[in-house]
Structure formats: structure tokens, C-alpha cells
Design a protein around this nucleic acid. Structure first.
Length: 696
DNA sequence: GAGCACTGC
């Protein structure tokens, strides 16, 4: 038998431009050397700063910020915009008289690492002149901090206390092209603030593709005379290496198999360099990893000099396993990272020279008709394809193998649909209302969401009691709901828990439901893990099961050893403790009585229904058995996440207007509530939950 | 009978 050979055929289009990536090199910023105060180091930091491409544009940037209310910076990867522009502004006096220069990031780690880097460049201790603010971690000083990095979600929160953001002279929205929910909210709100605060400057850092859209959005000049524009654009070239793009000769029938074959082909034909393969989910990643391990074993039997180290990467992977992808492989080993979309923007792995792109991604989608959010495998956008390719050119020239034809590439949409247009908007609308936006339908959205989704959200908020029938925020219920850093259903459940006599338990359940992957299932220990997990399971459902897990964790002194023995996510549980504390503080603020159900599950379940009544499903034709759920996931089938069985009479009792409405209106309306579930009744019936066992 | 892209407050 010969060593396995690949049959994958690729070709490289003659005119294809190298892959362009829009992202900053986060890893080099995080691994920057520690601060050493000697003149040589200071000099070298200064020299390093001057070598960055953005330095040439320093005066121009300052001129633009002086002249325009908004400046769009098209900053390519590695140009230094994130770390340098705030410092230029500081040096030019934009942080005088106690004002602050704010820079937002979509992700927490990015906010921390960039703040670290800038503090280091200025020879400052983090948290003084340069600081950051993320949830649970405020490393800034209200008096001393001049440059503040924060998550965009945090900026929106700050607007609740300071609607005109008076402390800030300049706000820079970094990575705006990613179009996360909170970046888009911040953008809309900043435009509104700018009309009242002519002195406030906004800098939007974006990729080429979106620059024009941002410009049109922020430009308040209606005269047609470009001299009166209030928004300017500047492009700063980046510093990346060229990436050769290869397409398959013909369409690929199975990208999982094709990924394996392409990895082997690279290993066989190409020079040294690590490989990064993109797939859509955990299952595909593990499948490819195990197929590759088989192939690698076969290869080693033939005495190949170079070995393969195959590593999976997805967010549900235990932390220690995730860290393995960042370890440098010895020269005799080629590292193969098989990852989900986490590797597209959230993490950067050094040393990648080859990228394999399957052309798909799992994205959240929202169906306003059924009010169901789901995860759907979708073709990626051209912007995404280019971002993936760019992952091969960070340290030296690289190659990207696309598992699709050039013709199919041309058919991909230019950009991914912004999150704002594919999410449940109830949390967004509650926030906007709390920020004083009365007419949310007329809010200046950069990309307006579907009207039906807005109406759906308004209806839900009304049913929860957060809005009155004029659509105004209710006081106190709506006002308080908006203050919780949770979705409105959770907030309602928490605020009602005192009345039900179970606030102690409910606050734990709410905190636990914010943590993903509480239960760890290592692929090679599935049975052991399931056995341990079953010990926590209760018949009532997932919510009480999670309560069990949390209470056991506390009982065992939050021991990481204990977590390991029971296949529980230690870091997740520690986070649940912190989240719980924050929620508890808010509940104290709103004087929600501290009560305990003292072991009676019914009050807890009724309280859950008071928040989640809109997420009710019947799981049997007889209609006698009902569940409430947290989320619905659509993969190959529909799955519900975090399910608990409830009495159907509770739904009518605890949400009379919601369920009466369904009865009074025509049959059509009634159908609307249930039909989505009855279709796949059997799926829901059998595979609906993580630990709950239904006995039929 | 056995699944879950990725963030964020």
C-alpha cells in the first residue's frame, strides 16, 4: 500500500490579487516586551512608532479631525491605527481639560491588549493615563485616564449614565467593518449626539469596502457642495505579505473530505509552514481532526521525516486545549489547526502560511414570523474570504486554497449581512428606549433592520410589561429591565423572582444560563462525562439542573479539581459566580426581596414562565405537556437549548394577555405560536435538551 | 437517545 495521495486539483488565476486582510496583528501587541525604563528602550519604542505606516499620515489625520466632525480611516492590517491615532490626538491636546479620548473594540481581549500596548509605549502604568473598561473589569481612573479603550457594548452602557458622552472629546470606533450589534448601535447614537455636540469628534476605523457607506451616513452636508462636508476619508496602507489564491478546478462535493485531502497535499507538496483550515462547527472540526490523525499515523508508518500536529480550535473547547494552538511547533513538525470561524477575527495564530477555506460559516439568523433565532450554515462573503486568506500572510508570504471554483467565488455576496439585520431586536429596542429614543422605527440605523422584526420586538416588550400600549418605557418595570445586562426575558424573570419567593435560586439560574459549555465533553471520554453529568440532572429540566451544578460547585469550595473530576467548565463556573454577584447587586438596587423556594421546584418553574412565556412549545400531539426554552438552534434538525417542563395552565395564568391574544385572534394567530414547533414535534420530543430525560 | 458559529452588557 502506498502512502495516501490527494486527488485535489487547484489552479491559481493569473490576475488574482493577493489576499487582503483588514485586521490588526493582535498577537504581536499582546506579546510585546515588558516595560524596561532605560533610554535605549525608550528610543527604540519611539523608532518603532515612527516606522508604522500610519506615522506618515500623522499631520493629515490631525488636520482631518480638526476640520471634520467625523473622519473615516480606512486602515489596513498592521498600519498601527489602533495604537497610534489615540496617541497623536493626545499629543495634539485633544485630552486637555479633563477630556477623554475613547477607543472602542468589539472584543474584551482586544481592549485589554491594545490598552497594554499603548500604556507600554508611553511608559505609563496601565490604568492611569491609559486605561480600559470592560464588563467586570474597570482599569481606568476617572481623573487620570486620558486614553480609554472599551468594548462597544460598554460605550452603549455609558450612554445610559451620560447621554451626551460629555467626558469624551473624541471617540474612535475600531473594527467598525465587523458591524457587530453594539458597534451599529453606537454608530446610530453617536450620529444623534453629534447633532447636539458639534465639538464631539468621531473616528470610524473601517475596511475599504464600507468606507463610502460610513461617509454617506455621517456626512450631514446636504448642500451638495463638497466643501461643506462634515465627514472626511483617509486611507492608510497596511503591512502584510502577499497571499496567493488557489481555486479548485471543479466544485467540491464534500468540503470535509476535501479539507483533509488538501491538508495532505500541502504536506506532501509544499514547503514548511503551518496550516489553518476553516470549517463551520465543532462536529466538522472534530471529524477532520480524527481523519487527519488516521492519515498522519499512516504516514508515520512510511517514515515521513516531517510529522503532523493536528489541533482543533473552537470556542467550546476547554481552555487548556485552546492554548495548544498558540504553542510553537518544533522545526520537524508541521502544525495543522482545524478551526471554526473563531480564527477569522477573534484569535490570531502566528506562523500560519497556508489557509484552507471551505466557503461556509455558521451564522445567526432570525425569523421574525416565528420569532425563532437559529444557526444556519451560510456561504461566506467576499470580505470574509479575503479575511480568511489574509490569515496566511501575517508573518511571510502565504497561500490560500479555496475549496470552491473562481466562478462560485464571484457569486458570493460582497459583505456579510450586519448582525442588526439578523437578530432578535427586543434587547436593542429596550436599550434604545432607555436611552430616550422614543420612536425607534425612525432611529438612524446604519442598516435598518426588517420592520417586522421591530414590530415583533415591540410586541414582546409590551407582553413583558416593559413598554406600555403607547410603546413608552414603563417605570419602574421597563426602566429596570433595561438596566440588566441580559435579554429582556431574563430581566423580567429576575425582577419577578422576589414575588414568587425564589430570587436566590433564580439569580443563580440566570447567571448559569449566561455561561456556554458548562458541561465539558472530551471526545475520547464521552461516556465518563455523560455519567458524571447525569448526577446533576433532575426531571424538572435544564434550569434546575444548572441550579444543582452551581450549588454543588459552591459546596465544594469552587474547586477546580472537583470540576475536572465531574467534567465541568471551571472557568465558566467562576464567571457564573461573578455574573451572579453583578445581578444580585442590581436586584438589591431595585429592592427585589431575597427569598428562597426552600426546595420547592414549582415556584421556580412558575417564575421562569413569567419571563419566558413567549418561548413555549408543546412537545406532544396531545398538547398536555409543555416546555419553556431559552433558545432554539437549527442545525440539521431543530434543537432547543435549556428546556424546562411546565404546566400549560401556568402560561395562561402568568401571561394572560399574551395567550388570550392568541385565542381571541383568528386561528391563524394561534397557529403562529405553535406551528413552528408542531412541524418537528418528534425532534423536539426526543432530543430537546442537554441532560433532561423525558420518559414517554 | 445524545447537539450547540462568535461576540458583548
Amino acid at each position: 500500500m502506498a502512502a495516501p495521495r490527494s486527488t485535489m486539483k487547484f489552479w491559481k488565476p493569473g490576475s488574482e490579487a493577493p489576499g487582503i486582510s483588514e485586521e490588526r496583528d493582535l498577537s504581536s501587541e499582546t506579546t510585546g516586551s515588558p516595560i524596561i525604563f532605560n533610554p535605549n528602550t525608550a528610543l527604540s519604542i519611539e523608532k518603532q512608532r515612527q516606522k508604522l505606516p500610519v506615522f506618515k499620515h500623522r499631520n493629515n489625520i490631525l488636520y482631518l479631525v480638526e476640520s471634520f466632525q467625523t473622519v473615516i480611516i480606512v486602515g489596513e492590517t498592521g498600519c498601527g491605527k489602533t495604537t497610534q491615532i489615540p496617541q497623536y490626538l493626545l499629543e495634539a491636546g485633544w485630552a486637555a481639560e479633563g477630556k477623554v479620548i475613547g477607543v472602542t473594540q468589539p472584543r474584551r481581549v482586544a481592549a485589554i491588549s491594545v490598552a497594554n500596548r499603548v500604556a507600554e509605549e508611553r511608559g505609563a502604568l496601565l490604568g492611569h493615563e491609559v486605561g480600559y473598561t470592560i464588563r467586570f473589569d474597570d482599569c481606568s481612573d476617572p481623573q487620570a485616564t486620558r486614553i480609554k479603550f472599551l468594548t462597544d457594548g460598554m460605550l452603549v452602557r455609558e450612554m445610559m449614565a451620560d447621554p451626551l458622552l460629555k467626558r469624551y472629546s473624541v471617540l474612535m470606533l475600531d473594527e467598525a467593518h465587523e458591524r457587530t450589534l453594539y458597534t451599529d448601535i453606537a454608530i446610530g447614537l453617536l450620529k444623534k449626539i453629534q447633532k447636539k455636540r458639534r465639538d464631539l469628534r468621531v473616528i470610524v476605523a473601517s475596511a475599504t469596502l464600507d468606507a463610502k457607506k460610513f461617509h454617506e451616513f455621517f456626512n450631514l452636508n446636504e448642500s451638495g457642495d463638497p466643501n461643506k462636508d462634515t465627514c472626511g476619508i483617509l486611507t492608510v496602507e497596511g503591512r502584510t505579505f502577499p497571499v496567493d489564491i488557489f481555486y479548485t478546478v471543479s466544485p467540491v462535493p464534500d468540503y470535509v473530505k476535501a479539507t483533509v485531502e488538501t491538508v495532505m497535499k500541502i504536506h506532501e507538496m509544499e514547503d514548511d509552514g503551518d496550516v489553518l483550515a476553516f470549517l463551520t462547527g465543532q462536529e466538522e472540526v472534530e471529524k477532520v481532526v480524527s481523519l487527519l490523525q488516521e492519515q498522519a499515523r499512516a504516514l508515520s508508518r512510511y517514515g515521513m521525516k516531517k510529522h503532523l500536529r493536528i489541533l482543533p480550535m473552537y470556542s467550546g473547547l476547554p481552555y487548556a486545549d485552546q492554548m495548544k494552538v498558540f504553542e510553537r511547533a518544533p522545526p520537524t513538525v508541521r502544525k495543522i489547526v482545524v478551526a471554526t470561524n473563531i480564527a477569522e477575527t477573534s484569535i490570531t495564530i502566528n506562523g500560519i502560511m497556508f489557509v484552507i477555506d471551505c466557503a461556509f460559516v455558521k451564522l445567526r439568523a432570525y425569523n421574525p414570523r416565528t420569532a425563532i433565532e437559529s444557526l444556519v450554515v451560510t456561504p461566506i462573503s467576499k470580505a470574509s474570504a479575503s479575511q480568511r486568506a489574509g490569515r496566511a500572510g501575517r508573518n511571510r508570504p502565504g497561500k490560500c486554497f479555496r475549496l470552491y471554483t473562481e466562478e462560485d467565488y464571484e457569486k458570493l455576496p460582497a459583505a456579510t449581512v450586519p448582525e442588526m439585520q439578523r437578530s432578535n431586536l427586543a434587547p436593542v429596542i429596550l436599550q434604545l428606549k432607555a436611552l430616550g429614543i422614543d420612536n425607534v422605527l425612525r432611529f438612524s440605523f446604519l442598516s435598518p433592520p426588517p420592520a417586522q422584526t421591530m414590530v415583533q420586538a415591540l410586541e414582546l416588550l409590551y407582553a413583558l410589561g416593559g413598554l406600555d400600549h403607547y410603546g413608552r418605557l414603563t417605570d419602574p418595570m421597563g426602566v429596570r429591565m433595561a438596566e440588566f445586562p441580559l435579554s429582556p426575558m431574563f430581566a423580567k424573570m429576575l425582577l419577578e423572582s422576589g414575588n414568587f419567593g425564589c430570587s436566590k435560586e433564580i439569580v443563580t439560574i440566570a447567571a448559569m444560563m449566561q455561561i456556554q459549555n458548562i458541561f465539558v465533553v472530551p471526545p475520547n471520554q464521552k461516556k465518563d462525562a455523560a455519567r458524571e453529568h447525569r448526577k446533576f440532572a433532575v426531571a424538572e429540566g435544564d434550569h434546575l439542573t444548572m441550579l444543582n451544578v452551581y450549588e454543588a460547585f459552591i459546596k465544594h469550595q469552587k474547586s477546580s479539581q472537583w470540576c475536572q473530576e465531574h467534567f465541568l467548565n471551571y472557568k465558566g463556573l467562576v464567571r457564573a459566580v461573578t455574573v451572579r454577584e453583578q445581578l444580585r447587586r442590581l436586584m438589591n438596587k431595585f429592592k427585589v426581596p431575597r427569598t428562597s423556594s426552600e426546595g420547592d421546584p414549582d415556584v421556580i418553574l412558575r417564575c421562569i414562565v413569567s419571563g419566558f412565556f413567549a418561548n413555549a412549545a408543546r412537545i406532544h400531539h396531545s398538547g398536555s405537556y409543555r416546555v419553556v426554552f431559552n433558545e432554539v438552534m437549527q442545525t440539521s434538525k431543530y434543537y432547543m437549548r435549556d428546556v424546562t417542563a411546565v404546566e400549560s395552565s401556568w402560561l395562561v395564568e402568568l401571561a394572560p394577555h399574551f395567550y388570550k391574544q392568541a385565542k381571541v385572534k383568528k386561528r391563524k394567530k394561534k397557529k403562529k405560536i405553535y406551528s413552528t414547533f408542531t412541524k418537528y414535534l418528534f425532534t423536539v420530543l426526543i432530543i430537546s435538551c442537554s441532560l433532561l430525560f423525558f420518559h414517554f
